[in-house]
């Protein structure tokens, strides 16, 4: 194995800090990626409540659904860290189990996101004109406009796409780029999973390969923690900015 030859040499070497080059690189990259998402989140917040037409977050968001997908992503972080722990202990079998779970959970999250995007794009408004209950501001507007002269209900598609309004624009691009990060992570972890079947491909000595992928994966998770709070929970809250 050429890799093995290379790493035998490596073990003799001392870096200035005693830390590994690639791990420092990964942390610098993550610091840099913070600025990437900060710019997107800032754009979302600057435009919050500035959309001229609906649908608004309150119309399309389904907090229970997103809570489940958030839960899925959090669990994938746990399985990721367990995969890494299994590898450190030398259990290749445990490693494969957990890393495959991570891939499945990550893919599930992406599935939720696709479903969500699809639902938003095909958002349907149904208003009972005789007995309207719990209308959002946007629905109230539709009610005022359409429910007159004995119309007993209003039914129409009001999809949210990136073109619809500022909310659609900022929401889809922010969560879409997060989804792109998740996709790259899933491909990376899947590659590690497959590589673990190659003899000497994934070994406890070469745990750093997995460590780096794990750092990236957890970072994508913490970004989602912020997005869930800021974009979803706080996004629905219409009292701010005044």
């Amino acid at each position: 194995m050429a890799e093995a030859t290379a790493s035998n040499h490596e073990s003799e070497h001392q870096t200035t800090t005693g830390l590994n080059h690639r791990k420092i690189l990964m942390w610098v990259f993550l610091g840099s990626d913070c600025m990437f998402f900060a710019t997107l989140i800032a754009t979302y917040l600057v435009y919050k409540g500035k959309s001229l037409s609906g649908p608004m977050p309150l119309d399309v968001f389904s907090i229970p659904v997103t809570t489940v997908s958030t839960f899925v992503l959090l669990m994938s972080s746990m399985s990721m860290v367990l995969a890494y722990a299994a590898l450190r202990k030398g259990s290749l079998k445990g490693y494969r189990t957990w890393i495959l779970s991570t891939v499945i959970l990550g893919s599930t999250f992406l599935g939720f996101q696709t479903f969500e995007f699809y639902e938003f794009a095909n958002h349907h408004v149904h208003i009972d004109c005789i007995n309207p209950v719990d209308l959002t501001d946007y629905e109230q507007g539709l009610f005022d406009k359409n429910c007159k002269d004995g119309v007993d209900h209003y039914d129409a598609q009001h999809g949210l796409t990136p073109k619809t309004n500022l909310f659609g624009t900022t929401f889809f691009v922010l969560t879409g780029l997060h989804g792109t990060h998740v996709t790259i992570g899933v491909i990376w972890l899947m590659s590690l999973f497959l590589y673990s079947f190659k003899k000497g491909g994934v070994t406890p000595e070469r745990h750093l390969d997995t460590d780096l992928a794990a750092l990236y994966w957890h970072f994508v998770d913490v970004v989602w923690i912020v997005i869930f709070a800021v974009v979803y929970l706080f996004g629905v809250f219409e009292g701010f900015p005044s």
Binding site: Y47, K50, S51, P162, K163, N165, L166, T169
Partner: peptide
């Protein structure tokens, strides 16, 4: 995205700044 996909990031008629 504004140029290629018609999003509204810098499109004032949609309320953008």
């Amino acid at each position: 995205f504004d140029r290629s996909f018609g999003t509204n990031f810098f499109f004032a008629p949609a309320g953008a700044d």
